[in-house]
Design a protein around this nucleic acid. Structure first.
Length: 531
RNA sequence: GUCCCCAUCGUCUAGAGGCUCAGGACUCCGCUCUUUCAAGGCGGCAACACGGGUUCAAAUCCCGUUGGGGACACCA
């Protein structure tokens, strides 16, 4: 349940709320809330287009892979921009050169590409904009909105410790706020801090979290320029968002407090603030912020495991956002339906089981030929050699059945392996158990019958034949199918065995039976131990 | 510790004061189909954190409590 009372209606209330919209309201006692719902998006959208172009951005710092939380933030920004025919930018926040890595940048770019979250224009590297950031800091200094601070690291540590002990103030105490620079200690390189307002409160009308208020005395004078003359994130992000014309900042809830602090920079510069939407974080199974500690993986790892990008996007979009009861939707549907107002306010736990279930759905819907393409690298890894043309044909023919039995590409690869493994097939332990002396005797009869059979090698005909044989031998079909499956697939679980025979073909099927029959019991059991 | 945010089945969620002794999805458990395993079909278990208000009527609005999370760097 979410309350609209505290939430701004959307990003545009300041532009056209409420007088223009009131014309659309029915002249009844129906509440304002219901009217908001009643106005169709298309009508609103027509107005948006005339009034303002939506600009969103995803701004990761390249300090690691693109994780699942980052991917969702990117996705929400992308969806929002696309929904309103706006612009979605990618900005790499690489101002901390020590922690930024080229490999991370690649991982982020590749991850977004794979998920088909495509940004407009070239990625913007924050590090290339340092001169502009410094220019703004100088201008703040000139306005008296910023000042030099000569406090040492040790002093700052002391302040924090004192704050915690007294349970009062936390952070910088403003000791250089009004002090004469001529008192500067020799040899200390200064930082530049923002002169944050002391009185009153700062209010943020967040599109997701609603109205958030904080007393200004809770905000200390944050550093804009480090002692090494590099700008901090807090400053850069504001300058870049402003210069890029970002209208909507959609980011993780962990930035909520930053928005309050950044508001002071916007104010000091006299810039209009963008709309903020702080989306709830994704939590691990234990309910805390998803992190490496939970074994959180980069999106490329999900790719390697065999998840489909459509499935990941579907799952991630549905995490914290909903459109009624609809669970499965296409990207186009998501773009049509997505709006920040439908994003929930509470954190969601990452549930691999549900992701896997959604992946299974997309896997089944995917074209067989396309699946084979995705499957080949996985199988190559398993058998060590590329799959030949015959193998590829078998895989494609088998795909309709195989894909019902797998939820990820790697599961699919394991299930499909027996189709392309070279003879003699290795058998797993359970399969060996079905090939005891009784099983082998049964198989012998079966092999003779199949070898002598003149009928076409086709699933239905084979099934008819073997059912007939079962009748003659006074056996159940299962009693024949079990050793047959063991010998042909090396396992006790497989797609329907007559279909398997058809796809393997007469020659290969009979050869696999011969392999087992030619093999001594001791060898079989030896094989089992190996497995 | 201080500040901020959050609260419906185990998980993701529907819910806009009366259509709801709360619906869907995942998970789990039955049954069915069946040559195995799946898939499919049918069914089941399972939630409005608590306490006060407001109202004819509260999961829904207000206040408080409790619980959970996040932020408190010369990181981003």
């Amino acid at each position: 349940m979410r309350s609209l009372r505290k939430r701004p209606h959307d990003g545009f209330d300041r532009v056209m709320w409420p007088c223009e919209w009131l014309d659309h309201f029915p002249a009844s006692t129906t509440s304002l809330r219901k009217c908001c719902k009643a106005i169709t998006k298309s009508r609103i959208k027509g107005k948006y287009d005339k009034i303002m172009k939506i600009v969103t951005r995803f701004a990761p710092s390249p300090t690691g892979f693109l994780h699942i939380g980052g991917a969702r933030t990117a996705l929400f920004n992308w969806l929002y921009a696309r929904h309103y025919s706006g612009v979605f930018h990618l900005r790499i926040e690489d101002t901390d050169k020590i922690r930024s890595e080229a490999a991370s940048i690649n991982a982020i770019l590749n991850g977004l590409n794979w998920l088909n979250i495509l940004w407009d224009g070239d990625p913007i590297f924050q590090s290339t904009r340092i001169n502009r950031h410094i220019e703004i800091i100088k201008s703040l200094l000139k306005k008296g909105a910023a000042y030099y601070c000569y406090a040492t690291i040790e002093e700052l540590k002391e302040m924090r410790a004192k704050g915690k002990n007294t349970g009062q103030f936390i952070g910088y105490d403003g000791r250089w706020r009004d002090r004469d620079q001529r008192e500067a200690p020799p040899g200390v390189l200064p930082t530049i801090r923002l002169r944050v307002q002391r009185e009153g409160e700062t209010i943020l009308n967040d599109l997701v979290q609603g109205r958030v208020t904080v007393m200004n005395k809770q905000l200390d004078d944050m550093i804009l320029l480090r002692a090494d003359a590099t700008p901090t994130y807090m400053l850069s992000v504001v300058v870049d968002d402003h210069d890029m014309g970002v209208t909507h900042v959609i980011r993780g809830d962990d930035h909520l407090m930053n928005a309050l602090r950044q508001a002071q920079i916007y104010q000091a510069m006299g810039w209009e603030m963008p709309q903020f939407a702080h989306i709830p974080l994704i939590h691990g199974p234990d309910g805390t912020k998803l992190s490496k500690r939970h074994g959180a993986l980069g999106v490329e790892t999900y790719r390697e495991i065999g998840f489909l990008p459509e499935a990941i996007c579907n799952y991630l979009t549905r995490l914290g956002w909903s459109h009624g009861d609809i669970e499965i939707f296409s990207t186009n549907q998501a773009v049509t339906w997505f709006d920040i107002r439908d994003v929930g306010r509470s954190a969601a736990r990452f549930d691999l089981a549900k992701l896997t279930a959604i992946n299974a759905h997309y896997l089944r819907r995917m074209a067989d030929s396309q699946l084979v393409k995705l499957l080949l690298p996985h199988i190559k890894t398993l058998i060590g050699v590329p799959v030949d043309t015959v193998g590829q044909c078998r895989l494609e023919a088998a795909m309709p059945s195989l894909k019902l039995r797998a939820r990820t590409i790697s599961e699919l690869a394991k299930a499909a392996l027996f189709y392309v493994q070279p003879r003699p097939l290795s058998l797993n332990k359970k399969a060996c158990q079905y090939l005891d002396s009784f099983g082998r005797a049964t198989l012998m009869v079966l092999a003779e019958r199949l070898a002598a059979s003149c009928r076409v090698w086709e699933a239905q005909a084979l099934e008819d034949d073997i059912r007939q044989l079962a009748l003659e031998q006074n056996l159940t079909l299962g009693a024949l199918a079990r050793p047959l499956r063991a010998a042909l697939t090396g396992a006790v679980v497989s797609p329907p065995i007559f279909e398997v025979m058809q796809i393997l073909g007469r020659e290969e099927s009979l050869a696999r039976l011969d392999d087992v029959l030619a093999c001594q019991c001791e060898v079989l059991s030896y094989q089992c131990e190996e497995l």
